[in-house]
Amino acid sequence: MDNGILIRTKDLVKVYPLGQQSITALADVNLTFRRGEFAGLVGPSGSGKTTLLNILGSLDAPTRGSAEVLGEKVETLSHRKAAALRNRHIGFIFQTFNLLPVYTVYENVEFPLLLLGMPPAERRRAVADALSWVGLADRTKSKPSQLSGGQCQRVAIARAVVKKPELVLADEPTANLDAENSHHILDTMETLNRDMGTTFLFATHDEKVIRHVRRKITLIDGRVAKDEALAGS
């Protein structure tokens, strides 16, 4: 995609069938994101934030319209190509961390690199770097059940950024965290955004997050109600 544009949506519509009726989750969403953005999708529950993130992450397909991510049209991607796009270029951070419970911290962070087929030595270095970015270099052997919520989310961030993706999609990353942990997490992500140029896109209604983002897009009933640039923290 040209001019540093990473994502572009055009008249994006997502409709979910619900019995005899249907629910419009997204209606004519037109947005553009450039590389290195640190942006937040805000809005009340059911406003379409997560749906938009899912489509941009190629986890779901639009009903109508177009979503172009890293030069790939999501609506035309096969399952295999969508998986390849996620594998190579997109990192995900979930509200409930979604760490693999039987794996250690090290193995969780290593997982995306295994899928990429990275050689072991390179993999070890990348995992060590990622864990040091999030301040968990000393917890490599711990299982998720032995970590606090904040630590789990930091592991999830390390897992999302370990492959140095162009885009990280974070769905309510601070919803299960206290203020101190939320602050720490957001600081970590801001640092990674600044140092590595990774684009971060959040779906959130957490004021703490909104205070950190440099662009705020407000969604209401699946439509973009406001798109504003912020000074950020």
């Binding site: 998986a83 796009l85 996620r86 594998n87 979930f94 693999l100 419970p101 995306p112 990429l116």
Partner: peptide, 15 residues
């Protein structure tokens, strides 16, 4: 199933 979703999100194909 949530773990399966996570695996898919990380780029694991269905196969």
């Amino acid at each position: 199933r949530k773990e399966i979703g996570t695996l898919m999100a990380m780029g694991m194909t269905r196969g």
